[in-house]
Amino acid sequence: MIEINNVSLRLGGTQILEDVSLTMPKGGVTALVGPNGAGKSSLLSLIARLQPLQTGSISVDGLPVDTTPSRRLAKTLAILRQDPAVASRLKVRELVGFGRFPHQRGRIDANDLLLIEAALQQFGLMDLADRFLDNLSGGQRQRAMVAMAFCQGTDYMLLDEPLNNLDMLFARQLMRDLRAAADNDRRTVIVVLHDINHAAVYADRIVAMKSGRVVADGPPAEVLRPDVLAQVFGYDMDVIDVGGAPLVLHHR
């Protein structure tokens, strides 16, 4: 369980987050949605201790993120930031293998090798495993980064806009992979999404943010309503029902 209590964040005179309190139970896929600058990425990086906490408290499985040793946390949560811009010339298999670092500190054993192959398989990277990252397309690189986070083998996976750079086919594939990670591997996936219709289909729960506050929180059918969406995104949009899931016509 991730518990966020009264978290505020102020950077360079701008209020990024304002008194956010949120509880995310273990398991399932949670989507964070909201307009640019809503504070989604900041919240994610605070949970993942990439930024120091200013006020309030955050704990993951009872471990306070500001005082727990980073190494310990790396076995509980994995984070993939938006545009990690890894410039190192690594092969895909090597990159994914570094996901095992928190467990082994560099000494890869037979079990790790199995997990690395499993992650490559899971994200359809077997054909690319021996290619260098800088010879891949943006989408392929992105999948390799997600596979590395998956390979870290943590209960919690935090992903910041992982669908960036992905075409429709791979975006859908990645969302299915994340769903499978939650269903089959009992991972807790928390993902920042801009494509709200992916959230509608693949998330168990949607947290909508605006101007540093949580404005709606619940299953897709509750959050993806015209009145809530207008409040979050600032314009009116229609929502229709397709096979039991809401479809937001946000582009019209």
Binding site: S45, A48, R49, L50, P69, S70, R71, R72, L73, A74, K75, A78, I79, L80, R81, P84, A85, V86, A87, S88, L90, F98, G99, F101, P102, R105, G106, A149, Q152
Partner: peptide, 20 residues
């Protein structure tokens, strides 16, 4: 060497992997 390779991927990737 492994720590240096991870460091070459940047501060955030390093922190995420529990590297000081």
């Amino acid at each position: 060497a492994d720590r240096l390779t991870i460091a070459s991927m940047g501060r955030e990737v390093s922190l995420g992997l529990g590297l000081n």
